[in-house]
Simulated scan of single mutants.
Amino acid sequence: MAGHSKWANIKRQKARVDAKKGKTFTQLSRAIIVAARNGIPDPDGNFQLRTAIEKAKSAGIPNENIERAIAKGAGTYNDDSILEEIRYEGYGIGGVAVLIEALTDNRNRTAADIRAAFSKNGGNLGETGCVSWMFEQKGVIVIEGELEEDNLLEVCLNADAQSYEIINDEDYQGAEIFTSVETLEQVNSFFQNQGFNVKETELRWIPNNYIEINDPEQTKFLLRLMDALESLDDVQNVTANFDILD
């Protein structure tokens, strides 16, 4: 399961820090624009948009910025830039598969930036489809708080969730619930109605298998690559299939 990866744990910790940074504001605003463009610009009838707005509010984005992003997606705001959703694929050192989701108004710039990040850190940008077959897209519901596993299992079964993972980091307690893409909204509503503290809901690419990394030099290059990719303004999400061993 995805959360058992030490890299996944590192990424969760980074996300809590990055939520306070300006780059996250850009990412979340762009996610709202795309969600409003792909569906109706009304969060009550657009689950993707509602989820993007909830994330933006949790990160402290002002309401006026959220409303402007919705207007851009709906085409009612005068803005010449057109955002395009693109998925990039490549390999890190040791044959690690890397999947990158980007939102960009200039695909040539984004591809060049991503290619540079790979080449500087022992990897290479590949062709479309070269690694995506190693991942499966799932719905993920993040809940916070101390949990009783027997109760969580029962709720997961009743909600038709696929699986779960309890998280006990030093500064965080909760769980991640995994669903199919199609049932994410339904399972999310079920958990909210049962009184769980749902912190985040998203679609995520989950590796089918992990490559175990126990070489300190390889670990250094892979973490540098992840940081370099995630620091790019056009990059929304980065997923890789490696696990760091103790």
Rank of each mutant, 00 (worst) to 15 (best):
E84S: 01
Y91C: 04
N197G: 14
T183I: 12
G3Y: 09
R224D: 12
T201R: 13
A97F: 03
G60S: 14
A2M: 04
L49T: 12
V131G: 06
I114K: 00
R109I: 02
V235C: 09
A56G: 14
T219V: 03
V142C: 08
K220D: 12
L245A: 13
Q218M: 14
P207L: 07
L83M: 00
I244R: 10
P216W: 10
Q192K: 10
T104H: 06
I141C: 02
L232Q: 05
G123V: 09
F190R: 14
V17W: 01
P207Q: 04
K120L: 08
A74S: 06
G92A: 00
S132E: 07
W205G: 01
A161Y: 00
I53W: 03
N121D: 12
E217H: 11
G139V: 01
G195P: 07
I66A: 02
Q48M: 07
V96S: 11
V34P: 04
T219H: 04
E202M: 12
N121M: 01
V131N: 05
I213W: 04
A112Y: 11
L28S: 03
I211E: 06
A175M: 00
D44C: 00
K120A: 09
G39N: 09
A2R: 03
R224A: 06
L203W: 09
G123A: 13
P41H: 03
L125E: 10
N241G: 02
V34L: 11
L229M: 10
N108D: 13
A240L: 10
L225Q: 11
Q27G: 05
A59K: 12
W133P: 11
N241S: 07
D246F: 08
A35Q: 04
